[in-house]
């Protein structure tokens, strides 16, 4: 299951829960009830609802932040493969365009002019990871490709009139056959 599928499913569940809550209340809005009793009940429900959200939030935060999803930026990553990436209006420069699946790749991403975003699309057209390309800074991205194929890099930070054509490609070879240049 891809990251997008998980995200889509979780969002749908959340939206459905909110929608059902509203539909239920709206279906009851025309009726009347004793405000004092309702007030007491609503406070009880709110207390449970508040703590349920707190527990959910802590659980999700813990589960998604540990291990921290961004690699250390100020110490060597010592990846088996490294690629120096420079973005400039409106082209990408990559130090190599042949990589191997199965071992980590460190992308060192910067820009020589304005802000860009270095987004990697898999052969099926889904984003697998991205980072910003900023003038004066180098963002280090660590990623292990699982599938061989042709990957596309697109700029996802608006950078001027040819922003939408600022793209390039690189090849990822299957792990068994190797692929390092």
């Amino acid at each position: 299951m891809s990251a997008q599928n998980w995200i889509g499913a979780i969002t749908l569940v959340g939206l459905a829960a909110v929608s059902l809550g509203f539909v239920y209340v709206l279906s009851q809005a025309g009726r009347t009830a004793d405000p004092a009793r309702l007030s007491k009940a609503s406070k009880t429900v709110r207390r449970w609802w508040f703590w349920a959200l707190i527990v959910l939030g802590i659980g999700v935060a813990w589960g998604t932040l540990k291990p921290f999803p961004i690699p250390p930026q100020w110490s060597p990553l010592q990846a088996a493969q490294t690629v120096d990436v420079v973005g400039q209006q409106w082209a990408w420069s990559l130090s190599t365009t042949h990589l191997a699946a199965g071992t980590p790749v460190e992308f060192r991403v910067t820009s020589s002019d304005v802000n860009h975003s270095f987004a990697i699309y898999d052969p099926q057209g889904h984003i697998v990871i991205q980072t910003q390309a900023m003038p004066g800074y180098t963002n280090k991205l660590l990623y292990t490709f699982r599938e061989p194929g042709t990957y596309t890099v697109r700029c996802l930070e608006y950078c001027g009139v040819a922003h939408h054509v600022m793209q390039t490609r690189f090849e990822v070879a299957a792990a068994a056959t190797g692929g390092r240049p």
């Binding site: 995200i7 959340g14 999803p69 961004i70």
Partner: peptide, 17 residues
């Protein structure tokens, strides 16, 4: 809901922009 989901760093890596 989709805003909070996207504010998760792991999600933002594939949904940002």
């Amino acid at each position: 809901v989709p805003a909070i989901v996207d504010a998760t760093i792991r999600v933002n890596r594939v949904m940002h922009n």
